[in-house]
């Protein structure tokens, strides 16, 4: 069976969930061979094996953290030469898409970004994409070279499938471009203790209707009662009420949780672009005409300052 390269997103050896989703999808197309780079690369192997990696190619070097994007492209290219895979899968983070694009160009391959599903086809993997703010669903293929495909987080349920996960050192020689863009400083994002926005099963978001940074405590309390991540509309972010890392939408994160709860958000096309593929959508808005109500499975027309705290209390009571 053909091999499929899976680029591993990890933090010091801790594998992030979207990579497990990639392994799950990769198995539909071939045998997953994982590529883990940088500090802690070898520590990823046990987890990757559990989710189906037959091999884990690792390489540790300071370049991966000290320079932007290109060292990782060099490594993936080396892995491609070593393996001759049927496809390369990368998760759709901002960096993931850039890595994938440059790799595709070097390989003379086409690239598909932001796939939400992947299946085997007669002419190679077929990717499903959701376009124009999720108003259309397309199916496409890479028609030249080794398909390079980036997949959105939360596109599939993770399934374990134990495999060998044999660790092999990858040999990488860095290109002249590798050290072009130096990372001169790095401030890690402070952990809130809540789930990652793009990985969360439930996302609770607030918009302009929340009306102040201090009021976001109401949104956070609801999120915590459900074990959810917190999101915000761009209006709330631009007002300085909540960090940009939590913005949902076209120029923020694209989320696809089981449940999305929007409070005080009107539902502009750019916001919808980032949440419309959520399985169940719920909204609280005092304007019955707000476009967000076109999307909902359940909507409450009302003041969020009444409805949301009552909801939070009721959830706490029910959970006991």
């Amino acid at each position: 069976m053909a091999e499929v390269l899976v680029y591993v997103d990890h933090v010091d050896g801790a594998v992030r969930k979207p990579t497990l989703e990639l392994l799950t999808l990769a198995r539909r197309v071939g045998e997953p061979v994982a590529v883990a780079l940088g500090n802690g690369a070898a520590d990823t192997a046990a987890t990757l094996a559990e989710y189906g990696a037959v091999k884990v190619l690792t390489h540790e070097a300071a370049e991966y953290a000290d320079y932007l994007v290109v060292p990782k492209v060099d490594a993936l290219q080396a892995a491609h030469e070593a393996v001759s895979p049927a496809a390369v899968l990368v998760s759709s983070s901002a960096e993931g898409k850039e890595i994938a694009a440059r790799l595709a160009l070097r390989l003379g391959s086409g690239i598909i970004t932001d796939a939400v599903d992947l299946e085997a086809g007669d002419e190679g993997p077929v990717a499903t994409q959701s376009v124009f703010a999720a108003s259309y669903t397309t199916k496409s293929r890479v028609s030249k070279g080794t398909p390079v495909i980036t997949v959105k987080p939360n596109s599939t349920a993770v399934e374990a499938a134990p495999a060998a996960g044999a660790v092999e050192a990858l040999s990488v020689s860095f290109s002249a471009q590798a050290t072009g863009t130096k990372v001169t400083g790095r401030t890690p994002r402070e952990s809130t203790g809540r789930p990652e926005l793009t990985e969360a099963a439930i996302v609770v978001s607030g918009g302009r209707g929340v009306n102040g940074a201090e009021n976001f405590a109401i949104i956070e309390a609801l999120a915590d009662s459900l074990g959810a991540a917190v999101g915000a509309s761009r209006a709330a972010v631009d007002a300085g009420w909540y960090p940009h890392t939590n913005q949902v939408g076209q120029t923020g994160k694209s989320v696809s949780p089981q449940l999305y709860i929007a409070s005080g958000i009107s539902g502009a096309i750019q916001h919808r672009a980032g949440m419309q593929t959520s399985k169940t959508i719920v909204a609280v808005n005092k304007d019955a005409e707000a476009p967000i109500f076109d999307l909902v499975d359940y909507g409450v027309v009302g003041d969020l300052f009444d409805v949301v705290p009552q909801l939070t209390e009721e959830i706490k009571t029910r959970k006991g």
Partner: peptide, 19 residues
């Protein structure tokens, strides 16, 4: 380098309950 085989309009979400 890529081929789009099909494009389908996403079915409108079935109208939800609004209270």
């Amino acid at each position: 380098y890529t081929t789009v085989d099909s494009a389908a309009e996403r079915p409108a979400r079935t109208a939800g309950t609004i209270v």
